[in-house]
Amino acid sequence: MITSSANARVKQVMNLTKKAKARNVNGLFVAEGLRMFKEIPADRIDSVFVSESFLKDETHKKLLSEVNYEVVSDDVFKVMSDTQTPQGILAIVRQYAYKEEDLLAAPGPSFLMILENIQDPGNLGTILRAGEGAGITGVLMSDTTADVYNPKVIRSTMGSVFRVPFVYTEDLTASLKALKAGGVRLYAAHLDGRNNYEKEDYTVDTGFLVGNEANGLTDETAALADAYVKIPMKGKVESLNAAVAASVLMFEAARQRRM
């Protein structure tokens, strides 16, 4: 059992939790909590750590019956954990290596979320989670968007990060032009939208552009949209949270495709 926070393995977990550079260099990330652990594909698990208290539950022991794991003291696990109330289990997981063509590989019309400079980890995680529920085929992100492997993002996805393809692009403009050339119709969530969002046809190859929480889409990116769409508001509300707006659009597309 590991009883010191100076242990090299403990330090590795802490580095992966706190530093995007460490995650990228090593191709690893940390997924914490019982529900998240159950969602991880077996072939993605690099290593597993559990607290001494976690093993006192017989159901937990059964869950780990076919898994190699390391036990750490409760105090050390608290140091390793990124949460205020640790559940006693976390895994180091191998990162994914999707390509842009993977976002278009699913059968049927493509259905993409395209994110520019989304900064809030909770928003990014929620978009992935809602996106899986709506049936998106993938997420394309500018390289200025928050790190999808940030522990807060991972928790917010509730497991969707293991199932929804996602790609960062260093040149969002070039990526969008390639999508348009391939027949994907791009819609920008924009205050200058001509039509309310439900008036457009999303049953074809579709990509929704959603911008930064404070500033929205850059002019350069918005100019590449085939159409601007708006979500009508009542009261004095001018706009919605990025994840909420994205969800409204995604589930309208899902509704149309069900019809």
Rank of each mutant, 00 (worst) to 15 (best):
Q119E: 13
D120G: 09
P121G: 03
P121C: 00
G122M: 02
G122A: 05
L124R: 05
L124P: 00
G125I: 03
T126Y: 00
I127L: 08
R129C: 06
R129Y: 12
R129D: 09
E132T: 06
G133N: 07
A134R: 04
G135L: 04
I136Y: 01
I136W: 00
G138H: 03
G138K: 01
M141S: 02
M141V: 02
S142A: 04
D143S: 13
T144V: 04
T144E: 01
T144M: 03
T145S: 06
A146V: 04
D147F: 11
V148H: 11
Y149R: 08
N150G: 11
N150C: 09
P151M: 11
P151A: 12
P151F: 12
K152H: 15
I154P: 09
R155H: 14
S156V: 09
M158F: 06
M158W: 06
G159L: 07
G159D: 09
S160N: 08
F162S: 04
R163F: 12
V164L: 09
P165H: 01
F166C: 01
F166D: 01
V167Q: 06
T169V: 04
T169R: 07
E170S: 13
E170C: 09
T173A: 07
A174E: 08
A174N: 03
A174W: 02
S175Y: 07
L176C: 04
L176P: 08
K177C: 05
K177A: 02
A178F: 02
L179W: 10
K180E: 08
A181R: 10
G183L: 11
G183W: 13
V184D: 10
V184T: 15
L186Y: 01
Y187H: 10
A188H: 14
A189P: 07
H190Q: 09
H190D: 10
H190K: 05
L191V: 15
D192Q: 13
D192F: 14
D192R: 12
G193V: 13
R194F: 14
N195L: 13
